[in-house]
Design a protein around this nucleic acid. Structure first.
Length: 349
DNA sequence: TAGACGTGGCA
DNA sequence: TTGCCAAGTCT
Protein backbone atom coordinates (compact mmCIF):
# COMPACT_ATOMS: atom_id res chain seq x y z
CA UNK A 1 0.00 0.00 0.00
CA UNK A 2 2.84 2.41 0.82
CA UNK A 3 4.56 1.71 -2.49
CA UNK A 4 1.29 2.28 -4.32
CA UNK A 5 0.71 5.49 -2.35
CA UNK A 6 4.16 6.78 -3.28
CA UNK A 7 3.14 6.62 -6.93
CA UNK A 8 -0.61 7.34 -6.80
CA UNK A 9 -1.32 9.61 -3.84
CA UNK A 10 -3.92 12.23 -4.67
CA UNK A 11 -2.70 15.81 -4.50
CA UNK A 12 -4.92 17.65 -2.01
CA UNK A 13 -4.62 21.17 -0.56
CA UNK A 14 -4.29 19.90 3.01
CA UNK A 15 -1.93 17.05 2.28
CA UNK A 16 1.85 16.64 2.47
CA UNK A 17 2.91 14.47 -0.46
CA UNK A 18 4.87 11.28 0.29
CA UNK A 19 7.87 12.86 -1.46
CA UNK A 20 7.71 15.96 0.75
CA UNK A 21 7.38 13.84 3.86
CA UNK A 22 10.40 11.80 2.83
CA UNK A 23 12.57 14.93 2.84
CA UNK A 24 11.39 16.04 6.25
CA UNK A 25 8.40 18.28 5.53
CA UNK A 26 5.94 17.90 8.39
CA UNK A 27 2.17 18.44 8.21
CA UNK A 28 0.51 21.34 10.01
CA UNK A 29 -1.82 19.73 12.59
CA UNK A 30 -4.20 22.69 12.24
CA UNK A 31 -4.66 22.06 8.54
CA UNK A 32 -5.00 18.31 9.08
CA UNK A 33 -7.64 18.87 11.76
CA UNK A 34 -9.54 21.46 9.74
CA UNK A 35 -9.63 19.22 6.67
CA UNK A 36 -10.73 16.18 8.69
CA UNK A 37 -13.65 18.06 10.23
CA UNK A 38 -14.73 19.45 6.86
CA UNK A 39 -14.44 16.05 5.20
CA UNK A 40 -16.80 14.33 7.65
CA UNK A 41 -19.63 13.01 5.45
CA UNK A 42 -18.59 15.54 2.81
CA UNK A 43 -16.93 15.14 -0.58
CA UNK A 44 -13.39 16.30 -1.33
CA UNK A 45 -14.69 18.50 -4.13
CA UNK A 46 -17.14 20.30 -1.85
CA UNK A 47 -14.48 20.88 0.81
CA UNK A 48 -11.68 22.36 -1.32
CA UNK A 49 -12.92 25.94 -1.66
CA UNK A 50 -14.05 26.11 1.97
CA UNK A 51 -10.69 24.82 3.17
CA UNK A 52 -8.85 27.43 1.11
CA UNK A 53 -10.97 30.29 2.40
CA UNK A 54 -10.68 29.15 6.04
CA UNK A 55 -6.88 28.83 6.04
CA UNK A 56 -6.55 32.12 4.18
CA UNK A 57 -8.76 33.94 6.65
CA UNK A 58 -7.65 32.09 9.80
CA UNK A 59 -4.10 30.78 9.18
CA UNK A 60 -3.65 29.26 12.65
CA UNK A 61 -5.80 27.64 15.30
CA UNK A 62 -5.19 30.67 17.50
CA UNK A 63 -6.62 32.93 14.79
CA UNK A 64 -9.69 30.74 14.54
CA UNK A 65 -10.05 30.67 18.32
CA UNK A 66 -10.10 34.47 18.33
CA UNK A 67 -12.60 34.72 15.47
CA UNK A 68 -16.19 35.85 15.82
CA UNK A 69 -18.44 32.77 15.92
CA UNK A 70 -20.88 34.48 13.56
CA UNK A 71 -18.11 34.91 10.99
CA UNK A 72 -17.25 31.22 11.28
CA UNK A 73 -20.88 30.24 10.72
CA UNK A 74 -21.06 32.54 7.69
CA UNK A 75 -17.90 31.02 6.26
CA UNK A 76 -19.27 27.50 6.84
CA UNK A 77 -22.69 28.26 5.28
CA UNK A 78 -23.46 25.77 2.51
CA UNK A 79 -21.18 22.99 3.78
CA UNK A 80 -23.89 21.38 5.91
CA UNK A 81 -23.91 19.64 9.29
CA UNK A 82 -23.60 22.97 11.04
CA UNK A 83 -22.84 21.54 14.49
CA UNK A 84 -19.44 20.85 12.98
CA UNK A 85 -18.85 24.58 12.67
CA UNK A 86 -19.83 25.24 16.28
CA UNK A 87 -17.63 22.40 17.49
CA UNK A 88 -14.84 23.62 15.23
CA UNK A 89 -14.87 26.97 16.99
CA UNK A 90 -15.18 25.37 20.44
CA UNK A 91 -12.30 23.03 19.64
CA UNK A 92 -10.07 25.87 18.46
CA UNK A 93 -10.80 27.75 21.67
CA UNK A 94 -9.99 24.67 23.77
CA UNK A 95 -6.70 24.12 21.94
CA UNK A 96 -5.75 27.78 22.34
CA UNK A 97 -6.83 27.96 25.98
CA UNK A 98 -5.94 24.53 27.38
CA UNK A 99 -3.11 23.39 25.13
CA UNK A 100 -1.12 26.53 24.41
CA UNK A 101 -2.30 26.61 20.81
CA UNK A 102 -0.88 23.19 19.98
CA UNK A 103 -3.03 20.16 19.20
CA UNK A 104 -2.61 17.11 21.44
CA UNK A 105 -0.71 14.36 19.59
CA UNK A 106 -2.44 11.35 21.14
CA UNK A 107 -5.77 9.79 20.28
CA UNK A 108 -7.03 10.20 23.85
CA UNK A 109 -6.02 13.84 23.98
CA UNK A 110 -7.66 14.57 20.64
CA UNK A 111 -10.76 12.52 21.41
CA UNK A 112 -11.49 14.79 24.38
CA UNK A 113 -11.91 17.81 22.08
CA UNK A 114 -15.32 18.90 20.71
CA UNK A 115 -16.21 17.48 17.31
CA UNK A 116 -13.41 14.91 17.38
CA UNK A 117 -14.67 11.32 17.52
CA UNK A 118 -12.84 8.02 17.18
CA UNK A 119 -12.18 8.38 13.45
CA UNK A 120 -10.89 11.95 13.54
CA UNK A 121 -8.73 11.35 16.62
CA UNK A 122 -7.05 8.39 14.95
CA UNK A 123 -6.69 10.24 11.65
CA UNK A 124 -5.06 13.34 13.17
CA UNK A 125 -2.69 11.38 15.38
CA UNK A 126 -1.62 9.26 12.41
CA UNK A 127 -1.51 11.89 9.66
CA UNK A 128 -0.32 14.93 11.60
CA UNK A 129 1.92 13.20 14.17
CA UNK A 130 2.79 9.93 12.46
CA UNK A 131 1.56 7.93 15.42
CA UNK A 132 0.33 4.38 14.94
CA UNK A 133 -3.45 4.42 15.08
CA UNK A 134 -6.25 2.32 13.60
CA UNK A 135 -7.89 4.80 11.25
CA UNK A 136 -11.29 3.59 10.15
CA UNK A 137 -13.51 5.71 7.94
CA UNK A 138 -16.14 4.72 5.39
CA UNK A 139 -13.52 4.04 2.72
CA UNK A 140 -11.49 1.79 4.95
CA UNK A 141 -14.61 -0.03 6.14
CA UNK A 142 -15.38 -0.81 2.52
CA UNK A 143 -11.83 -1.93 1.71
CA UNK A 144 -11.56 -4.22 4.73
CA UNK A 145 -15.02 -5.77 4.56
CA UNK A 146 -14.16 -6.71 0.97
CA UNK A 147 -10.64 -7.93 1.74
CA UNK A 148 -11.90 -10.32 4.42
CA UNK A 149 -15.52 -10.74 3.30
CA UNK A 150 -16.75 -9.43 6.63
CA UNK A 151 -20.48 -9.98 6.29
CA UNK A 152 -21.58 -8.63 9.65
CA UNK A 153 -23.84 -5.66 8.88
CA UNK A 154 -22.61 -2.19 9.81
CA UNK A 155 -22.35 -0.69 12.33
CA UNK A 156 -22.06 -3.97 14.29
CA UNK A 157 -19.04 -4.88 12.17
CA UNK A 158 -17.03 -1.89 13.36
CA UNK A 159 -15.08 -3.64 16.15
CA UNK A 160 -14.19 -6.49 13.79
CA UNK A 161 -13.04 -4.02 11.13
CA UNK A 162 -11.09 -1.95 13.64
CA UNK A 163 -9.25 -5.03 14.87
CA UNK A 164 -8.33 -6.00 11.31
CA UNK A 165 -7.12 -2.47 10.52
CA UNK A 166 -5.13 -2.42 13.75
CA UNK A 167 -3.35 -5.65 12.78
CA UNK A 168 -2.59 -4.30 9.31
CA UNK A 169 -1.30 -0.88 10.34
CA UNK A 170 2.51 -0.60 10.18
CA UNK A 171 4.66 1.16 12.76
CA UNK A 172 6.42 2.95 9.91
CA UNK A 173 4.41 5.65 8.11
CA UNK A 174 1.04 4.90 9.74
CA UNK A 175 -0.28 8.24 8.46
CA UNK A 176 0.57 7.50 4.85
CA UNK A 177 -0.86 4.02 5.31
CA UNK A 178 -4.21 5.46 6.39
CA UNK A 179 -4.22 7.97 3.55
CA UNK A 180 -3.26 5.24 1.09
CA UNK A 181 -6.24 3.15 2.19
CA UNK A 182 -8.56 6.14 1.90
CA UNK A 183 -7.25 6.98 -1.57
CA UNK A 184 -7.72 3.35 -2.58
CA UNK A 185 -11.31 3.43 -1.36
CA UNK A 186 -12.02 6.75 -3.05
CA UNK A 187 -10.50 5.97 -6.44
CA UNK A 188 -10.41 2.17 -6.93
CA UNK A 189 -12.29 0.27 -4.23
CA UNK A 190 -15.39 2.39 -4.91
CA UNK A 191 -18.90 1.57 -3.66
CA UNK A 192 -20.13 0.73 -7.15
CA UNK A 193 -18.16 -0.96 -9.93
CA UNK A 194 -14.80 -1.04 -8.16
CA UNK A 195 -11.78 -1.08 -10.49
CA UNK A 196 -10.33 -4.31 -9.12
CA UNK A 197 -8.02 -4.71 -12.13
CA UNK A 198 -6.13 -1.61 -10.96
CA UNK A 199 -6.03 -2.57 -7.28
CA UNK A 200 -2.56 -3.08 -5.77
CA UNK A 201 -3.88 -5.62 -3.26
CA UNK A 202 -6.47 -7.47 -5.32
CA UNK A 203 -4.56 -10.72 -4.95
CA UNK A 204 -5.33 -10.59 -1.21
CA UNK A 205 -9.02 -9.75 -1.58
CA UNK A 206 -11.55 -12.47 -0.75
CA UNK A 207 -14.46 -10.57 -2.30
CA UNK A 208 -12.51 -10.09 -5.51
CA UNK A 209 -11.79 -13.82 -5.59
CA UNK A 210 -15.46 -14.70 -5.24
CA UNK A 211 -16.65 -11.88 -7.49
CA UNK A 212 -18.76 -10.44 -4.70
CA UNK A 213 -17.03 -7.02 -4.40
CA UNK A 214 -20.25 -5.06 -4.58
CA UNK A 215 -21.88 -7.12 -1.82
CA UNK A 216 -19.69 -5.43 0.78
CA UNK A 217 -20.02 -3.72 3.13
CA UNK A 218 -23.36 -5.09 4.31
CA UNK A 219 -25.60 -2.26 5.47
CA UNK A 220 -29.07 -2.25 7.03
CA UNK A 221 -31.99 -1.25 4.83
CA UNK A 222 -32.70 2.46 4.63
CA UNK A 223 -35.80 3.84 6.24
CA UNK A 224 -38.27 5.80 4.22
CA UNK A 225 -37.93 9.57 4.39
CA UNK A 226 -41.07 11.27 5.73
CA UNK A 227 -42.28 14.46 4.07
CA UNK A 228 -42.61 17.53 6.23
CA UNK A 229 -44.33 20.74 5.26
CA UNK A 230 -43.96 24.33 6.33
CA UNK A 231 -44.01 27.92 5.18
CA UNK A 232 -41.30 30.56 4.88
CA UNK A 233 -41.95 34.29 4.92
CA UNK A 234 -39.78 36.67 2.95
CA UNK A 235 -40.54 40.20 4.16
CA UNK A 236 -39.11 42.93 1.94
CA UNK A 237 -38.66 46.52 3.01
CA UNK A 238 -39.10 49.46 0.62
CA UNK A 239 -35.33 49.63 0.02
CA UNK A 240 -35.17 45.94 -0.88
CA UNK A 241 -33.78 44.73 2.46
CA UNK A 242 -35.03 41.36 3.71
CA UNK A 243 -35.96 40.41 7.27
CA UNK A 244 -33.69 37.68 8.66
CA UNK A 245 -33.62 35.79 11.93
CA UNK A 246 -31.03 33.69 13.74
CA UNK A 247 -32.12 30.13 14.37
CA UNK A 248 -31.64 28.52 17.79
CA UNK A 249 -28.13 27.17 18.40
CA UNK A 250 -29.29 23.59 18.80
CA UNK A 251 -31.20 21.41 16.38
CA UNK A 252 -31.66 21.59 12.64
CA UNK A 253 -29.61 24.38 11.00
CA UNK A 254 -28.61 25.36 14.53
CA UNK A 255 -27.09 28.82 14.87
CA UNK A 256 -27.64 29.60 11.21
CA UNK A 257 -29.56 32.47 9.65
CA UNK A 258 -32.84 32.25 7.78
CA UNK A 259 -36.11 33.94 6.96
CA UNK A 260 -38.95 33.43 9.47
CA UNK A 261 -40.67 30.08 9.02
CA UNK A 262 -43.35 27.98 10.63
CA UNK A 263 -42.37 24.75 12.27
CA UNK A 264 -41.82 21.94 9.79
CA UNK A 265 -44.29 19.20 10.57
CA UNK A 266 -45.45 15.94 9.07
CA UNK A 267 -48.99 17.30 8.86
CA UNK A 268 -50.24 17.45 5.28
CA UNK A 269 -53.33 19.53 6.09
CA UNK A 270 -53.80 23.30 6.21
CA UNK A 271 -51.10 23.79 8.78
CA UNK A 272 -49.30 26.13 6.40
CA UNK A 273 -50.42 29.10 4.36
CA UNK A 274 -50.28 32.85 4.86
CA UNK A 275 -52.42 32.46 7.96
CA UNK A 276 -49.38 31.03 9.73
CA UNK A 277 -47.33 34.17 9.10
CA UNK A 278 -45.40 35.64 12.03
CA UNK A 279 -47.03 39.04 11.50
CA UNK A 280 -49.68 40.60 9.30
CA UNK A 281 -48.70 41.70 5.81
CA UNK A 282 -49.93 41.35 2.25
CA UNK A 283 -48.45 37.87 1.79
CA UNK A 284 -48.38 36.29 -1.64
CA UNK A 285 -47.40 32.71 -2.38
CA UNK A 286 -44.36 32.80 -4.67
CA UNK A 287 -43.70 29.11 -4.98
CA UNK A 288 -43.09 25.79 -3.23
CA UNK A 289 -39.55 24.54 -2.89
CA UNK A 290 -38.43 21.03 -2.07
CA UNK A 291 -35.32 20.36 -0.04
CA UNK A 292 -34.04 16.96 1.03
CA UNK A 293 -32.40 16.65 4.44
CA UNK A 294 -30.78 13.51 5.77
CA UNK A 295 -33.85 12.27 7.57
CA UNK A 296 -36.80 13.99 5.89
CA UNK A 297 -37.93 15.80 2.77
CA UNK A 298 -39.18 19.36 3.19
CA UNK A 299 -41.84 21.01 1.07
CA UNK A 300 -41.73 24.68 1.87
CA UNK A 301 -44.30 27.25 0.73
CA UNK A 302 -42.57 30.57 0.18
CA UNK A 303 -44.56 33.74 0.80
CA UNK A 304 -43.45 37.26 -0.01
CA UNK A 305 -44.72 40.65 1.11
CA UNK A 306 -43.56 44.23 0.85
CA UNK A 307 -43.62 45.59 4.38
CA UNK A 308 -44.08 49.32 4.93
CA UNK A 309 -44.41 49.32 8.72
CA UNK A 310 -41.61 47.62 10.65
CA UNK A 311 -43.15 44.54 12.30
CA UNK A 312 -42.57 43.87 15.98
CA UNK A 313 -40.43 40.85 15.35
CA UNK A 314 -36.91 39.85 16.38
CA UNK A 315 -34.33 39.86 13.61
CA UNK A 316 -32.57 42.29 11.30
CA UNK A 317 -32.88 43.73 7.82
CA UNK A 318 -30.29 42.63 5.31
CA UNK A 319 -29.90 44.48 2.01
CA UNK A 320 -29.53 42.45 -1.16
CA UNK A 321 -25.82 43.17 -1.48
CA UNK A 322 -25.10 41.84 2.01
CA UNK A 323 -27.40 38.84 1.70
CA UNK A 324 -24.80 36.51 0.17
CA UNK A 325 -22.51 37.14 3.14
CA UNK A 326 -25.10 36.04 5.68
CA UNK A 327 -24.95 32.60 7.34
CA UNK A 328 -27.65 31.23 5.06
CA UNK A 329 -27.96 27.46 4.67
CA UNK A 330 -28.83 26.20 1.20
CA UNK A 331 -32.49 25.65 2.01
CA UNK A 332 -32.80 29.32 2.96
CA UNK A 333 -31.09 30.42 -0.24
CA UNK A 334 -33.61 28.32 -2.12
CA UNK A 335 -36.45 30.05 -0.28
CA UNK A 336 -35.02 33.47 -1.10
CA UNK A 337 -34.57 32.30 -4.68
CA UNK A 338 -38.29 31.53 -4.89
CA UNK A 339 -39.09 35.06 -3.72
CA UNK A 340 -36.41 36.79 -5.82
CA UNK A 341 -35.82 34.72 -8.97
CA UNK A 342 -33.25 37.21 -10.26
CA UNK A 343 -31.10 37.20 -7.13
CA UNK A 344 -30.72 33.54 -6.28
CA UNK A 345 -30.59 30.65 -8.65
CA UNK A 346 -30.67 27.00 -7.58
CA UNK A 347 -29.44 27.80 -4.12
CA UNK A 348 -26.33 29.59 -5.35
CA UNK A 349 -25.88 33.26 -4.68
C1' DT B 1 -28.32 1.89 20.10
C1' DA B 2 -30.73 4.44 16.95
C1' DG B 3 -31.93 8.83 15.38
C1' DA B 4 -30.59 13.68 14.41
C1' DC B 5 -27.87 16.17 11.60
C1' DG B 6 -26.93 19.12 5.14
C1' DT B 7 -25.55 19.17 0.79
C1' DG B 8 -24.43 18.31 -4.09
C1' DG B 9 -23.14 14.99 -7.48
C1' DC B 10 -23.87 11.04 -10.01
C1' DA B 11 -25.86 6.62 -12.06
C1' DT C 1 -36.16 11.21 -11.51
C1' DT C 2 -34.98 8.80 -7.49
C1' DG C 3 -31.83 6.89 -4.49
C1' DC C 4 -27.36 6.49 -2.80
C1' DC C 5 -23.68 8.26 -1.00
C1' DA C 6 -18.94 11.30 1.05
C1' DA C 7 -12.62 11.17 5.43
C1' DG C 8 -18.71 10.90 11.43
C1' DT C 9 -20.18 12.93 15.84
C1' DC C 10 -23.34 13.68 19.38
C1' DT C 11 -27.08 12.41 22.31
Amino acid sequence: MLAWYDRHARTLPWRISPAERAVGVVPDPYRVWLSEIMLQQTTVQAVKSYFDSFVHRWPTVTDLAAADTEDVMKAWAGLGYYSRARNLKACAEAVARDHGGRFPDTEDGLRALPGIGPYTAAAISAIAFDRKAAVVDGNIERVFTRLFEIDTPLPSAKPEIRAAVDRATPADRPGDFAQALMDLGATICTPKRPACALCPIDAHCLARASGRQEQFPVKPAKKEKPVRRGAAFVAERGDGAVLLVKRPDKGLLGGMTGVPTTDWTVRADGATGAGAAPFDADWHLKGVITHVFTHFELQLEVFHAVVTVAPDFPGWWSKTDSLPGEALPTVMKKALGAAFPALFRKGKT
